[in-house]
Design a protein around this nucleic acid. Structure first.
Lengths: 191, 191
DNA sequence: TGAATTTCTTAAAGTAGTTTAATTTTCAGC
DNA sequence: GCTGAAAATTAAACTACTTTAAGAAATTCA
């Protein structure tokens, strides 16, 4: 079933078919209905999670009830609370399916062993982790320096597939603006 | 000379005195005058950099001339462009001394070897890296969710030593507001 | 297919933060 | 201790974004 993960491992992590199959032998497949949760506050993230199909969002809820979107992800992406996964501490995040989704989960203990065994896999995850860090740094600088219109246009350029796929209010929450203001921006943008 | 680094390695990375001395044998000491640069755009970060004494700031300059502060650091902290260091790509950042400073530099090739040799050192840097990631994530959520006043008060709580030590306009640029507005916030805060 | 729910839009009034500009204060370095 | 430069303050006018509210459009799933 985890065909997309196998493809990813062979083409991106440069594993042989046999190596990829070995990784897949540890994988649990998880199916989520729309609105179902993959992770909730208080839980510890026990797996690396690859999206085979569907779409998910990770977000926090503040004391005042406001939601802040950390990540939007679709098939072919990894989604996780890396903090909770790496430190094995309780998460403060929700990860929820925004469309029916199928995920491949690699349990941390199994992955830790596999990483030592297959250098290609280590490099792949090291690279993913570095890219996650850099993307976060970019986002921090973006928020410091640019107004909402610029942030939105760059978001559309950078992630054209996401802008179509997620409700506007989630995109607004990712960008740090209200859905009403995003709606205004979009209508100005069209004319 | 690198006494603070030795202390850090022995108490935080839990290295023996002999191990710490081995690390120190690879260290270059660099002295910076106020306003001197440790890193500039286009350069590749070749070292892990520990602040023995003094204070530094890392920041970018946008096309429109505006500055955005990524990190403020004082003695006992590490400061770097991790992206450039890890990927060995050209940096887009400035790192500048805001006070006369002394740094201990560990060249990347030497550190890569040391990390394999001393597990304590690996765990120490893995932990540092995870914390850097988490701090960045916190900052992203902070900026999405809180207004300037809240961000400033939390900054003061979290880093009381920094608020005193750096010019206000750098703190403002770290928080993503103008120095004028930070000045207003501060005067409201006092009364 | 149709009803219920969720999402999006529009607009007016309000607010948080910026800009500009002039003045004062602080501080580095001789 | 002086001096020039850098940093901080203040205030008024302005703008980007939020809030509130109400109606329209789209989507889900029974």
């Amino acid at each position: 079933m985890p065909e997309n993960l196998q493809l990813e491992l062979q083409t991106k992590a440069l594993l042989s078919e046999a190596e990829a199959k070995e990784v897949l032998s540890h994988v649990q497949v998880k199916t989520l209905k729309r609105k179902e949760f993959l992770l909730q506050p208080g839980m510890v993230s026990q797996h690396m999670r690859f999206i085979e199909s569907g779409a998910l969002r990770s977000y926090t809820i503040e004391d005042d009830g406001s939601e802040h979107t950390l990540q939007l992800g679709v098939e072919g992406w990894w989604i996780n609370d890396l903090y909770s996964y790496l430190t094995q501490q309780a998460s403060r995040m929700f990860i929820q399916a925004t469309e029916p989704a199928v995920l491949s989960l690699i349990p941390k203990p199994a992955l830790d062993v596999l990483l030592r065994k297959h250098p290609g896999l280590s490099y792949y995850f090291l690279d993913k982790f570095q890219k996650a860090y850099v993307a976060l740094q970019e986002r921090t600088l973006e928020q410091l320096g640019n107004d909402a219109k610029d942030r939105y246009t760059r978001f559309c350029e950078q992630y054209p597939q996401l802008e179509q796929r997620f409700p506007q209010y989630m995109v607004a929450s990712y960008l740090g603006i209200t859905p009403e203001f995003l709606s205004q921006l979009r209508s100005k943008f069209r004319s």
